[in-house]
Computed example of a mutant assay.
Amino acid sequence: MANPRVWLITGASSGFGRLMSELVLSKGDIAVATARKPEALDDLKAKYPSTKLLVLKLDVTQAHEIKDVFIKIKETFGRLDVVFNNAGYAMMGEVEATPEDAARTMFDTNFWGATNVSLETVKFFREENRPAGGRLIVNSSEVGIHGIGGCGFYSATKHALEGVTSALVQELDPEWNIKITLVEPGTFRTPAIGKLGEGYSHPAYNKPTLPGNLFRVAFHDSGLKKADTSKGVLKIYDLSLLSEPPFRLPLGKDALEMIRGEAKSILEDAAKYEVWSEGLDFDT
């Protein structure tokens, strides 16, 4: 490849991040793959020279580690073309069952960690790249649009991430040439699925027909159809090549169905109660 692109991929030890790292390298691009435990990528390091693959330690809950990664990218490659802001994890449990400290810890990763990566990305694209610009792909979730019973706080982290990213996009100067997309995957087969476990439970919610319990059963007996993650990352790579990418990319048939249902419900409620908004202005 005459002009390989430099990618930063967070959460590269498994799942979407690992497969994206492998795909980027196979395409002839350069991958900066980060993980809390970088030794998980030792096998990939053995296959590629340091000019093609740079593995760095990154815990996205540590702001100084995020800054250090971007400094290292500047020193090593001098530019950065695409960021796949992917690090995060899910946690099962009804809202009332989940301890506050566990929920806050997940917010530190899924919201604050991802947001700080996005902010450092924008700064780098604007101030270091010549000409300015770059692609930021934020891996959100279908639950960032429609919360799921049994994963309430995980849904909340993704809702928050969607909200701040939507505001960030509006704030950017178009002259900076920074393109941002929220990817909203449905249920894909990744190691994270297996790590959900039982999560947290509450005796008041022990009825088998309640959503949280149906959600648990679906994961444990393979009742949820899970899409092929390797095919998903191919679509995300294709997204990175679009000159005018969408702001949102729902990915997977279940994601499309969920988002369409949520949009339909919102529009129906707005239409049904539209009259309630009449006459609310101050009298003139």
Rank of each mutant, 00 (worst) to 15 (best):
E94C: 14
A156I: 06
G163N: 06
T34W: 03
L182T: 11
G147W: 01
E184S: 07
A40N: 15
I145Y: 12
C151M: 12
N110M: 00
L234A: 14
P211E: 05
D101R: 07
A192W: 07
R248T: 03
C151A: 13
F153I: 01
M92E: 08
G147Y: 01
E184H: 09
T51K: 14
S14R: 12
P174C: 03
Q62I: 07
S140V: 07
T209K: 05
F215S: 09
A132N: 12
T105R: 09
H146M: 11
E120A: 14
T109L: 13
S155G: 13
I178V: 14
G163W: 06
W112M: 00
P174T: 07
G261R: 13
L25T: 06
C151Y: 08
K37C: 01
Y200I: 11
R36M: 14
A271G: 12
D269V: 13
D29M: 00
P185V: 14
A271T: 10
V233S: 00
S118T: 04
P203D: 11
M91L: 15
T229V: 15
L256P: 06
F125N: 11
A12C: 11
T98W: 02
A33C: 06
R130A: 14
I148M: 14
M106R: 01
G147K: 01
I73N: 08
L210E: 06
D42Y: 09
A12K: 10
P246R: 01
H64L: 10
V164M: 07
S26T: 05
I178Q: 00
D81I: 09
S240R: 05
N86S: 12
H146K: 10
V95E: 11
G93A: 05
H202S: 04
R126V: 03
K226Q: 15
G133Q: 09
E65M: 01
R79V: 05
Y154N: 04
H64F: 08
N116I: 02
S141H: 12
R79H: 14
T165N: 04
F125V: 04
E128R: 04
L172M: 09
L168T: 10
